[in-house]
Write a protein that binds this DNA or RNA. Structure first.
Length: 467
DNA sequence: TCTCCTACCAC
RNA sequence: UUUGUGGUAGGAGA
C-alpha cells in the first residue's frame, strides 16, 4: 500500500533536489524551479503589493504548498499533478493578466461533506486559483499578524487550540466563572462582502489587490452545470478563506478589547469570560447587537448561551474549577465521539487484516490522546481504558458465540461432533490471538498513561516556549 | 541540530 | 472529501 506513495515521492522530490544543477546560469533565482526555464521577466519586482504577490519566489512557494496539500481539482478538473506543466506554459500570461487587472477567477466547485448535524458546504477553487489565493495569503499574513488579537488562536501560525484552552484556564483561575459562548451561524456563508472589503482596504493600500480579492469573493459557485453568483460569503475551501475570516473577526476582537472583556476566540468559536452571571447576560446581548448590526454577521441564538463555565463546550473540552484553579476536562460529546469511532474500528473493520486494524487503532488513539492531553483526568483515562478493554472482550465473546451456534448447526446437519468442534477451536484460537494481540499491544494503560506523562512534560515546555 | 516525505488527530 | 493552522507518531536523507 505504501509502494505507490513511495514512488510518487521519489519522482517528485528528485527534480527539487537536482535544482542546483542549473545554478550556474540562472543566478539568484535558482531556488525557483518553476521559473528556471524562463526567467527573463523577473525584474518586474516593484514595491507594490501586487508585484510582491506575483513575484516568482512567492508564487513558487504558493505552488509548492498547493502541491504538498494534494487537494483535488476544481471545476476545470485539473489536478495538482498537471499543475506544474500548466504553470510553466501559462505563467507569463497569468501574471500579466493579474497585473493588468483582467484576470477572472474560476467559480468554485460545490462539495457537500457530512457534519455532526446536516452537512458542510465547501467551495473548491481550481488548482490555479488555489495557487493565486495562497500567494495572496502568504503576503497578507505577515501584514496582518501583528494587528491580530492576542486572544485569537484559530488559523494562525504558531498558535493552536491548546493555547486557547490554556488562556481560558488562566481566566477561570483569575475568577471569571461565567462565560458567554457565542456561535456565529454559518460564518463563512454569511460574510458581508462590502464590510469585508472595507475592512481590508484599511490595511491593504494596493487597490489592485483589494479588487483581486473582491473578484475571488464574487467568483460564484458551480452547481451542476449552472454557475451561481455569490453576493455574500467567502468560499470555504480556498487558502484565502482562513485569513479573511480572521480579518473580519479581528474587528470583533478589537471591539471586545476596547470594552476590556476577557475573551478567547478560535476561528468562529468565541468565548467571553465574565465575573458574574448578570454581566455575562449583559455582555451577550450587547455583543449580539454589535455582531449583527456592525459586522452584519448572524449569531446562532440556539447554540449561543451565557452560563456557568461548567456548562460550556469549547474546542472539545469543558471547564470546572477546583481548589481555586481552572481545570479542563473532556466534554462528554468528545468522549462519545471517541467511543463511537473505536466501536467502528473494532467491529466494522472486518477484512482489514489485523496488523492494519491495530495500526489504525494506535494512530487514532495516540492522536486523540494527544489532543486531549490538557484535560485533568487521571480517573477518566483509566475509565476509558477499562471501557476499551471491555469492548474488545465483548467482540471476542460475540465471535465465539457465533462460532458455537454455527457448530451446533453443523452437528444438526450431520457433521461429526469432533470434526465440528475441531473447526470451532481453530476459529476460536484465530480470533482469540487476533484480538488479544490488540488488547495487549495497542492502547491499554501504557498508551493512555503515556498521554498523562506527556501532559506533565508539556507544562514544562509550555512555560519556556510561550514567553 | 536541520531538511524532506508519509500517516493520523483537533479545530 | 476541500482549505488552513497547530500537534503527534513513523520513515528517508546530510
Amino acid at each position: 500500500m505504501n509502494g505507490r506513495t513511495q514512488k510518487i515521492s521519489k519522482e517528485e522530490t528528485c527534480p527539487q533536489k537536482n535544482r542546483t544543477v542549473s545554478e550556474g546560469y540562472v543566478g539568484g533565482q535558482t531556488f525557483l524551479w518553476i521559473t528556471e526555464n524562463n526567467l527573463t521577466d523577473t525584474n518586474q519586482l516593484g514595491d507594490g503589493l501586487l508585484e510582491m504577490i506575483v513575484s516568482p519566489s512567492n508564487l513558487n512557494r504558493a505552488y509548492q504548498q498547493v502541491k504538498r496539500n494534494k487537494g483535488s481539482g476544481g471545476v476545470d478538473k485539473m489536478e495538482v499533478e498537471s499543475l506544474q506543466d500548466y504553470l510553466v506554459i501559462h505563467k507569463d500570461e497569468l501574471i500579466t493578466s493579474i497585473l493588468q487587472g483582467n484576470y477572472r477567477p474560476n467559480p468554485v466547485r460545490r462539495v457537500l461533506i457530512p457534519k455532526d448535524n446536516g452537512h458542510r458546504k465547501l467551495g473548491i477553487p481550481t488548482v490555479v486559483d488555489r495557487c493565486i489565493q495562497q500567494a495572496i495569503a502568504q503576503v497578507l499574513s505577515p501584514m496582518y499578524e501583528p494587528q491580530f488579537s492576542d486572544n485569537s488562536y484559530g488559523f494562525r501560525p504558531r498558535r493552536n487550540a491548546h493555547g486557547a484552552l490554556r488562556k481560558c484556564q488562566a481566566y477561570i483561575t483569575e475568577g471569571y466563572k461565567y462565560a458567554v459562548d457565542l456561535d456565529l451561524e454559518k460564518f463563512f456563508d454569511t460574510v458581508n462582502h462590502s464590510k469585508l472589503i472595507e475592512t481590508l482596504s484599511r490595511t491593504v493600500k494596493d487597490g489592485r489587490v483589494v479588487s483581486l480579492i473582491h473578484k475571488y469573493l464574487n467568483a460564484g459557485v458551480q452547481v451542476g452545470s449552472k454557475i451561481r453568483t455569490s453576493e455574500v460569503g467567502v468560499p470555504q475551501g480556498g487558502p484565502l478563506s482562513p485569513i479573511l475570516s480572521n480579518i473580519m473577526l479581528n474587528e470583533m476582537d478589537k471591539e471586545l478589547e476596547s470594552r476590556e472583556h476577557k475573551f478567547v476566540r478560535y476561528a468562529d468559536d468565541l468565548l467571553i469570560l465574565c465575573r458574574s452571571k448578570r454581566s455575562a447576560e449583559r455582555t451577550m446581548s450587547s455583543m449580539i447587537h454589535f455582531i449583527e448590526d456592525k459586522l452584519f454577521l448572524k449569531v446562532n441564538r440556539e447554540k449561543s448561551q451565557s452560563a456557568h463555565i461548567r456548562k460550556v463546550k469549547f474546542l472539545g473540552y469543558s471547564f470546572y474549577k477546583s481548589k481555586g484553579e481552572g481545570r479542563l476536562r473532556i466534554h462528554r460529546k468528545s468522549v462519545a465521539k471517541m467511543k463511537a469511532k473505536i466501536k467502528e474500528l473494532t467491529s466494522r473493520s472486518n477484512g482489514w487484516g489485523n496488523s492494519r486494524r491495530k495500526e489504525v487503532l494506535r494512530q487514532y488513539i495516540t492522536g486523540w490522546g494527544n489532543y486531549f492531553k490538557l484535560a485533568d483526568m487521571k480517573n477518566r483515562l483509566l475509565r476509558i481504558d477499562e471501557w476499551y478493554r471491555r469492548r474488545i472482550r465483548m467482540v471476542i465473546w460475540k465471535q465465539w458465540k457465533r462460532i458455537r451456534t454455527r457448530v451446533k448447526n453443523l452437528i444438526k446437519l450431520g457433521v461429526k461432533k469432533s470434526k465440528a468442534w475441531e473447526w470451532a477451536n481453530t476459529r476460536k484460537s484465530y480470533w482469540h490471538t487476533a484480538n488479544s494481540f490488540i488488547l495487549k499491544t495497542t492502547i491499554t494503560t501504557e498508551n493512555l498513561r503515556k498521554a498523562g506523562y506527556v501532559m506533565l512534560s508539556d507544562q514544562y515546555r509550555k512555560v519556556s516556549i510561550k514567553t
